[in-house]
């Protein structure tokens, strides 16, 4: 029961949990969020471009990713990556891709689909009159997007993008299925080694909760401020 919890196990493993596990989790989150944002914005623009073949390809990609469980996608890329690598480099046999690179590419491609949907809604939320006005001033399509539409869309969508990043932070725990040492992976390894599952998993839950709850409070404050400005 709770009285028999051995917190010294947790204390002893703190350097490992945070120095290795949390650093891995945060690195993966930050890189995948940045990559996913860039790729997602591109996907959203392609989808809204109206170019027939491209629009459909982007739509298909986004819908496919969103229809599949992340765990399956993680497995897909883990096994697909060596072949894709061989194809890209022209090598004769599958090349080795480390699990971190594999996870990073997976999360980037997966999150891109979710970011793309948020961006698409954001771009569509900017009144049509705005781009009409920009075009009337002589701006090109690219200028209109970059200087007028996207800055407004980003502001509208910032809270949603950040919330999605919090979800991503939680989802990175699924690299557990590739036996990587993210924060949960580290906690799990200590738990198995010392036979202290209760302490380690409760502590992991507490840390995730503290980080995500604090981050979501910040997002909410930001949201309130944006709402006032508008």
């Amino acid at each position: 029961m709770l009285a028999s919890l051995d917190l010294s196990v947790v204390a002893a493993s703190l350097p490992y949990l945070f120095g290795e596990g949390m650093v891995f989790t945060l690195t993966l989150t930050a890189l995948a969020a940045s990559g996913g944002l860039v790729l997602g914005t591109g996907l959203a623009l392609v989808r809204l471009s109206g170019v027939p073949g491209l629009t459909h390809a982007a739509k298909l990609y986004v819908e496919l990713m969103r229809a599949l469980p992340l765990v399956l996608v993680i497995f897909w890329f883990y096994f697909l990556m060596p072949y894709l690598g061989a194809w890209a480099t022209g090598a004769a046999s599958p090349i080795q891709v480390g699990p971190f690179a594999s996870a990073l590419i997976t999360f980037t491609l997966f999150e891109a689909a979710y970011f793309a949907e948020i961006m698409r809604a954001g771009i569509q939320s900017v009144p049509k009159g705005q781009s009409a006005a920009a075009r009337a001033l002589g701006m090109s399509y690219a200028q209109t997007m970059r200087l007028v539409v996207l800055p407004q869309a980003f502001r509208n969508m910032l809270p949603l993008l950040l919330t999605q990043t919090i979800v991503l932070f939680q989802d990175t725990s699924l690299v557990y299925v590739l036996s990587l040492t993210d924060f949960l992976g580290a906690a799990s390894k200590v738990a198995q080694r010392d036979g202290r599952l209760v302490e380690m998993y409760l502590f992991a839950a507490l840390v995730y909760f503290a980080v995500c709850f604090a981050a979501s409070l910040l997002v909410r404050r930001l949201q309130a401020r944006i709402a006032v400005v508008r």
């Binding site: 029961m1 557990y176 949960l184 998993y201 995500c212 709850f213 979501s216």
Partner: peptide, 23 residues
């Protein structure tokens, strides 16, 4: 809502499966 939204699903899964029976 805050409790169940701010802990990763995988961690919740472990809590139900490994931790709850012990408690």
């Amino acid at each position: 809502v805050e409790l169940f939204r701010n802990v990763p699903l995988l961690v919740q899964m472990f809590l139900w499966y490994f931790v709850l029976p012990e408690l």
